[in-house]
Amino acid sequence: MPASKAPADCTNMAELREQIDALDTALIDLLAQRVGYIDRAVDLKKVEGLPARTVDRVAEVKARVRALADARDLDPDLAEALWHTLIEWSIAREAVHLG
C-alpha cells in the first residue's frame, strides 16, 4: 500500500519509517509486476526476432524516465541510474532466455 501520509504530516520517526516501509512494499510490488512484462517480452522477442538489447528502446526509456523524474522534482540522475540498473538486469535476464 502506498504511503498514506505526506512527509510533512509525520510527527515522529516511527510514523515516517512506516510510510517509507509502505512505499518500499509498493515499489517491490511494482518491480515484480514489471518483471512479468520482461518475461513476456522474451516470448514476443522470439516470435518477432528481436534481440535482448534494443539500443533505441534503452535510450527512449532512459529519456522518458529522466523527463518523468524532472517533472516530479526528483533528481533525473538518480532516476536514470536506478533505471540503468533495472534495464541492464532486464536485458541480461532476456538474453539468458533468448540464447
Rank of each mutant, 00 (worst) to 15 (best):
M1C: 14
P2E: 08
A3C: 06
A3F: 07
S4F: 02
S4I: 10
K5T: 01
A6F: 12
A6T: 11
A6N: 11
D9R: 00
D9C: 01
C10G: 07
T11L: 09
T11M: 03
M13C: 11
M13L: 15
A14P: 02
E15V: 00
L16G: 04
R17G: 05
R17Q: 10
E18I: 06
I20L: 13
I20H: 06
A22E: 03
A22H: 07
D24W: 11
A26E: 11
A26F: 02
L27C: 12
L27Y: 12
I28S: 01
L31S: 13
L31H: 06
Q33T: 13
Q33D: 15
R34G: 11
V35I: 13
V35R: 13
V35Y: 09
Y37Q: 14
I38C: 12
D39C: 10
R40T: 05
R40A: 08
R40E: 12
R40H: 09
R40M: 10
A41L: 09
D43A: 10
L44M: 12
K45G: 10
K46I: 05
K46M: 06
K46T: 04
V47H: 02
V47E: 13
E48G: 07
G49P: 03
P51E: 04
R53Q: 07
T54Y: 12
T54N: 15
V55E: 11
D56A: 12
D56Y: 06
R57N: 15
V58E: 13
V58R: 13
A59M: 00
A59Y: 08
E60W: 15
E60G: 14
V61K: 00
V61F: 03
V61G: 03
K62G: 07
A63L: 13
A63F: 11
V65M: 09
R66V: 02
R66S: 04
A67E: 15
L68S: 05
D70L: 08
R72N: 10
R72P: 05
L74G: 01
D77I: 02
A79V: 05
A79W: 01
A79M: 04
W83I: 09
W83D: 00
H84M: 11
T85D: 06
L86V: 04
L86R: 07
L86N: 02
I87N: 04
S90T: 03
I91M: 02
I91K: 04
I91T: 08
R93T: 10
A95F: 05
V96K: 15
V96R: 15
H97R: 15
H97P: 08
L98R: 06
L98C: 09
G99Q: 05
G99W: 05
